[in-house]
Design a protein around this nucleic acid. Sequence first.
DNA 1: TATGAATGAGTTTTCATTCAT
DNA 2: AATGAATGAAAACTCATTCAT
Lengths: 208, 208, 208, 208
Amino acid sequence: MLAGLRRQEILAAAIHVFGKKGYAATCVEDVARQARLAKGTVYLYFDSKEEIYAAAVRAAVERLHALAAERMQGVQGLRRRLSVAISVRMEFWDQQLNLYRLLLTVGREAQHKRQTHELLRAGHAFYLSILEAGRDAGEIAPGVDLEAIAWAILDLVRGSNERRMERLTRRTPQQDAETITAFALRQLKLHADPGPDGHSPEPPQEQP
Amino acid sequence: MLAGLRRQEILAAAIHVFGKKGYAATCVEDVARQARLAKGTVYLYFDSKEEIYAAAVRAAVERLHALAAERMQGVQGLRRRLSVAISVRMEFWDQQLNLYRLLLTVGREAQHKRQTHELLRAGHAFYLSILEAGRDAGEIAPGVDLEAIAWAILDLVRGSNERRMERLTRRTPQQDAETITAFALRQLKLHADPGPDGHSPEPPQEQP
Amino acid sequence: MLAGLRRQEILAAAIHVFGKKGYAATCVEDVARQARLAKGTVYLYFDSKEEIYAAAVRAAVERLHALAAERMQGVQGLRRRLSVAISVRMEFWDQQLNLYRLLLTVGREAQHKRQTHELLRAGHAFYLSILEAGRDAGEIAPGVDLEAIAWAILDLVRGSNERRMERLTRRTPQQDAETITAFALRQLKLHADPGPDGHSPEPPQEQP
Amino acid sequence: MLAGLRRQEILAAAIHVFGKKGYAATCVEDVARQARLAKGTVYLYFDSKEEIYAAAVRAAVERLHALAAERMQGVQGLRRRLSVAISVRMEFWDQQLNLYRLLLTVGREAQHKRQTHELLRAGHAFYLSILEAGRDAGEIAPGVDLEAIAWAILDLVRGSNERRMERLTRRTPQQDAETITAFALRQLKLHADPGPDGHSPEPPQEQP
DNA sequence: TATGAATGAGTTTTCATTCAT
DNA sequence: AATGAATGAAAACTCATTCAT
């Protein structure tokens, strides 16, 4: 039963070429060639080009969720949890820039809207749950609009990823993650924490 | 000689259908049908499908820049200028959601990268110039990373627009603009100003 | 009644552009532009693109026949008549290289075969009648295959014109006409005549 | 792997329909239909309609050159060599009248000029080399314009082929080849040779 | 008469999908 | 399971012809 393996190979190939040339500009033969298979073989594992795309997205999202869950294990405190949450998502997409690009392009075509919305909502829910846990633990004042902040984090993470993808920035995912975390904490009126190694990730910059 | 008018009609039709179905999924005949013209007629006014897209973007950008310049006229002070800058861009795109969608989708196709980058850079430069003017006027402390904040504003504006476009939010562009302005001011360590009508756009929310 | 004049102008324009770009590659608008008219106007004078071509050929052929008849007026003797006949046709086409090109290309398309055949037959008949008159006058021995020689003259004239048209030769129509006349006379077993200015157009070159 | 065979089939079909209707008037679907294939299949073997034409010409020319080289093998003496050279080319094209027609039509379209020139030059060079070998062997007097005679042979061969193609003559290629050879020899001031079977291919016809 | 905007049939080309081997 | 030749629907683009002004 190598069927599962073959599927993985094809998905990896699909992510690669879809991400590089875009969905419309990529033909199934490109995917097959990248997977070192014949065109017909791809159709033994997937019913259509469309399905390949859907499966690729689904697989990536599952891996992201698994990775995020794993990395969040045992991390305590709002500051630490938010920092890890932002870092893990940024680093994950940074490893998958081709797929990320794919999501951004293809995800807007009318036919893929639904799937893209799911993705966005899932990302939003992820950050929101962390923030809400912080509020429930009393770390955040009750009046703050956590929904808006969760969306803002999503927006900032996406923008950073995109600039990196388009080579409009030289910042590393780690640097961006720190900056975004600091931004978020400032919105939450929390002081930036001193960081794991005892010094602040960002100078206080307090006005006189 | 209604050539100019016809072009406008075709552009409007193109923005409509491109925005709805995406660039790749739309055929020139769809555009023609929307404009109540025959396929061939479209080619009397544009050399190619590609050129229609380019013209649509160009026209929108010019209108945006003209509108922004006009609305910024005579607005003084960092807080006011930033607020207007964010509002004008949000409202403009809110009027042009189909075109905005078009930019987001098509703009990622490899062939349109360059044009999209120009657009992003122009947006970034616009916000940055306002911030830098504020720093030069002594309204912002010198150590703040204005580049990062300009990018962040861009990201947040884009995210807001997109959520409105995808009906993931019920907030108005005005509400979002206020929130983003407040976010930005907080990053800049400025106090939110009292607003033109004498009450703060956002409660102080200071932590105890 | 300028209708006739307009037709002539359009035909001249058509010959120019058809000859330059070929029949298929030329669109009616090209013809109209060359004639400094609008596309629709051309259709007031001709029913179709096809008809323009037919009329252009017909007009040229009529002019050729008129010119040939005029130039042959009063020319006596086989040698002189053949020389003039070859010269006049070569020079005529040399003035009309674009139309000549047109005949060569378009004339082969299935739909124009009949017209092209007429043309070839007319050319053949023209040379043949001169040769036959020479034979009837006792200038040519009875056994010679005049039909074949008439075709040969046609072939050689066409080849010369074509090489000139394609710039594969630097010879003038006059030089080529002399050479072909000499070739023909040699086939007819007549000695080349001394020419109008008293010296032979070609050295005798008799074998020792 | 019948790819080579399919290509041949498509080329044969293309030569057939291009030759019949002309290049411009034939659409790729016509070629496909003649080859009993679907339109798309043709594009598996050729990149464009243009390439089909080019390949057809190339293939024919290669076959012609191979055939000519083979048939010239071991043939000695100017008379014999010239006779074989003319015969082989006439017979070859007589077998390929459709392709010949194609060359004549398409070859004049502006875009194919270069290829057609090559063809003409190659034909000219072929005859010229035979004539020059004859001169070098002392069989031809030095003053004769061999270039012009080589062009004349080309013109006459072409004319004969064309008349046969257009059914304007009933002569066989062999008959025409003999006549043209005799013409050529007469221009070269050589006596027509008695032929391989002991009788002259053409009655002496000497003038009294 | 003259115009040129509009039309839509026709052409080249691509590619997702099928299926005989 | 794997292949890749074959298919034909669909798309971009052209241009002869018409017709309202």
